[in-house]
Write a protein that binds this DNA or RNA. Structure first.
Lengths: 132, 132
DNA sequence: CTTGACCTTCCCGCGACTGGAAGGTCAATT
DNA sequence: AATTGACCTTCCAGTCGCGGGAAGGTCAAG
């Protein structure tokens, strides 16, 4: 299977597959006589694995670690879990940060009449002590 | 005032101030005879404005637009509000995305016993139909 | 035998910085 | 007067995870 077919089947764009090969996330693909990369069904499964992990927000580095564990039949599930917990902590941190921002924005937007007059609590908040 | 003092007072790192000048977010600073950038208190206020807007997650492009409105005494608060609303929508979109991820991760982590055995619902989820 | 869809490598760009190298300047101390 | 060390300057490269596009080779269909 050529890279285009592997891309369609896995959901990972061809350019991204080449990139993953480049950075060593996946091993170098075999080549046809003409130099085309050749993929097997197993390769597509790996790509799907990567695609799902990425869509859960795991970093490419984490995905590499998860891939290694996936391939390792002797793995300890604790290792997998540790990676997932680390990622979830990061996700929760980001959510908290965004929630704080959202609350602030909501308050500011509610206070802004939003007409053609210049006075605006949003700008006042960004420049306290300066123009107000 | 030199860039270091402006950085300390505004909370924007010196490197970042130079970067902002480079990309045109702030006008080119005046120079001393020796070629050092010179900043006024008003410049520091501008940098503080930028710092606060960035800490609310506004893109540098949005910050540029907000700065222009801030400087415009004839502005319509509706324009400011529009920018804030656009940003809040984006923040809410990201929160929703992260919440979905968080829920999935929590479920997966809860299902993973996390010991030295290899079976793991997290990997099963990433590779369905492959190893289980 | 040509067309058009595929494939290859290559390098550049994004956003928003951050780090570091190589060199100039300034104020204080010896 | 010389030196030290903290500052400043420019420029280049790297981060992360790709995407765009150029220049060229390959392949199957018509």
């Amino acid at each position: 299977m050529n890279i285009g077919a592997a891309a369609t089947r896995s959901g990972v764009p061809a350019k991204t597959i080449r990139y993953y090969e480049d950075i060593g996330l996946i091993p170098k693909a075999g080549r046809t006589a003409a130099g085309y990369r050749a993929y097997t069904d197993a390769d597509v499964e790996t790509l799907k694995f990567i695609q799902r992990a990425r869509s859960l927000g795991f970093s490419v580095k984490d995905v590499g670690d998860l891939l290694a564990l996936w391939r390792d039949r002797e793995r300890a599930s604790a290792d997998v879990r540790r990676i997932a917990e680390g990622h979830m902590a990061e996700v929760e941190r980001k959510i908290a940060e965004l929630e704080t921002i959202r609350l602030t924005l909501r308050t500011l937007i509610e206070g802004c009449h939003g007409d053609d007059r210049p006075d605006c609590p949003i700008l006042d908040r960004l420049a306290p002590g300066c123009c107000g």
